[in-house]
Nucleic acid binder design. Structure first.
Lengths: 353, 353
DNA sequence: CTGAAAGCGCTTACAG
DNA sequence: CTGAAAGCGCTTACAG
């Protein structure tokens, strides 16, 4: 490794002159000609600054801890990390990620490790939208909560606009001409469930339609979803179904098949997630709303770096197009999803809008 | 942050005594009683060592760079990272991962960043098994190639035993009593394709069956797989199909449905990948072979740390059960997959064996 | 405009 | 058995 000292010796100047020039702080301190000379020597020696030495002195590591429950075991939520990585790179930070696997004692240990490595701040991220207690070890540090809401309503939190998702999905079906729209929801206490349902209701009411209790069915993902889907289609005879997620949509597909109904013709379906492997497996293609994971990760790092550096939120854009929009108040940021059009909706209009 | 100096002052000893004791190197250098006293003061002050300062001095960062093409955008391959993280944690290392997104210039930049942060070694990992040119910036460092083979046949490389997978899958169908077993493969040049095919052929021959060219069909994942699946079932009339992967299996499912065949009865299916979202969506459940991603990541870190510390491969085991077995020679390690039994095979035996 | 010096928190010969 | 000192590579007052 070539060090400042090597450059100083080679260029015939002092170490501090080199440091100043390479950090661009040499105005009125080093002449332009020596500055140029120093820059050339550094380049010719292929100098790379040693981040660790710098951190030791400045107490800023340009390292972000990414602590997550089991995000990286979950296909779609991984995109939070991708978005966070991209923003970090653009802002001169690196990300160190740790999986807690929902083990609180492992979590404590990992946060301690991250602190030993001098992380400047933390992302506390989750596999799906929920309300969380943030560990006290994180409260003393700059921290942003991702795909979750801080129970104390204190730390900045970024999560999807579930109401908007329910509203948009239902409207998509209304626009397709559906008159009896069902909601095939989740039975678990997951926060998205009541909020998407509320969005569904609002869309129906705005369109002057009643919400028939028969049309609202909740199911458990892996246990009774298939049967309940059949029941729903038989008993309530909907012409459109807003599904809580793609996995439940696959139950509706199976039910429609069983009952001899043609999807996209006899019945229209819109769901949430856009899981590649489900949408690959379903025929016809499933129209679904993608959650803004990538965008949440990106936005979270922007907010976090603003906290760390105590400056305004950096104005950077991801290379990958933002598909979602924002709603920001002081601490909580909600983000819309974006609809991916395929063929499960009658007369489906193609393209996003 | 409390430092060695703080402890030394509080305990009334020198900084070096504290360092020695806390690193367990104090035999014949510090008395047991002062050692104990030092340990107590350190604990009471909640001392956490500063890794950066240590690294600066020792030139060992206990940090591993994890450079990957787009692994973390891909559901299943993410498990490489999980396995690597677990092994790293057990060995006192942390992982810094970077996604190159297959952009060579980004890759160079990221490797440079990782070196600035003083990574002790590198994992060079891929989304699916292939032969790769390892960048020269990595050749000068301890590096292990994961889910890929170093084209120079020089760096340690860890990848799945594709032949064994084809052999096992086909044998599973033979065991179920299938007599006309098809192979529904990939049209791409992917390395797994010919190797799994070879395993399939070997299994057939070992069972005294011929490989009928009609029974071997290759297809492109998203373009013609559905049609070719129908053709295969119609023309060759197999009673069992070994599918290259779960996505192709879903095409066979669709074809069987279309032709009125009952899966698990008229026709048995075994594939590769065990993608949760596909297997969730398919009825009946798909019997499939899971690739040893977790295990490859774990093993890779073990080999890498052995190189870095110039010692024998550490003897650690993952918390999560190893489901796969190893085959190691000097530089190349192949790993078997493990079959996940569901209901797509006639008379399916349950449980792993 | 430039250099010498101190110090970030550690480890490790070296001298007693 | 113990301490004083040097040094890892950097940054930043301070003095000229």
């Amino acid at each position: 490794m070539v060090s400042l000292k090597d450059i100083a010796k080679q260029a015939g100047v002092s170490v501090c002159a080199v440091s100043l020039v390479l950090n661009g702080k040499y105005k009125n301190r080093v002449s332009d000609t020596t500055a140029e000379h120093i820059r050339e020597t550094a380049a010719s020696l292929h100098y790379e600054p040693n981040m660790l030495a710098r951190t030791l002195k400045t107490n800023k590591s340009h390292t972000l801890g990414f602590v997550t429950d089991e995000i990286i075991t979950t296909p779609f939520a991984v995109r939070i990390m991708l978005g966070a990585q991209e923003a970090a790179r653009k802002l001169g930070y690196i990300l160190i990620s740790m999986n807690t696997n929902n083990d609180k004692s492992l979590e404590r240990q990992e946060i301690a490790t991250l602190k030993r490595y001098h992380a400047d701040g933390f992302l506390y991220a989750f596999m799906y939208h929920r309300v969380v207690d943030v560990p006290s070890a994180l409260r003393s540090m700059p921290t942003v909560v991702v795909d979750a809401e801080d129970a104390n309503h204190d730390l900045p939190s970024i999560y999807p606009d579930e109401f908007g998702i329910g509203y948009d999905a239902t409207n998509r079906l209304i626009k397709a001409g559906c008159r009896r729209i069902a909601y095939f929801g989740s039975e678990s206490g997951i926060i998205a469930q009541p909020q998407r349902l509320a969005g569904y209701r609002k869309a129906l009411h705005d369109a002057g339609m009643n919400d028939d209790p028969q049309l609202i069915v909740r199911a458990t993902e892996h246990q009774n979803a298939d049967e309940r889907a059949v029941d729903l289609l038989k008993v309530a005879a909907p012409d459109g179904v807003f599904c809580f997620n793609d996995v439940r949509a696959s139950s509706i597909y199976a039910a429609a098949n069983e009952l001899g109904m043609t999807i996209g013709k006899d019945i229209s379906i819109v769901s949430v997630d856009n899981l590649p492997n489900i949408t690959d497996a379903l025929r016809p293609g499933l129209t679904t709303i993608e959650l803004p994971h990538y965008e949440m990760g990106f936005e979270a790092v922007c907010q976090l770096v603003a906290m760390i550096e105590q400056r305004d939120k950096p104005d950077i854009k991801p290379d990958q197009m933002f598909r979602s929009s924002f709603d920001t108040d002081d601490t909580f940021t909600t983000m819309h999803g974006s609809i991916i059009e395929r063929d499960s909706v009658q007369h489906a209009a193609h393209g996003n809008e």
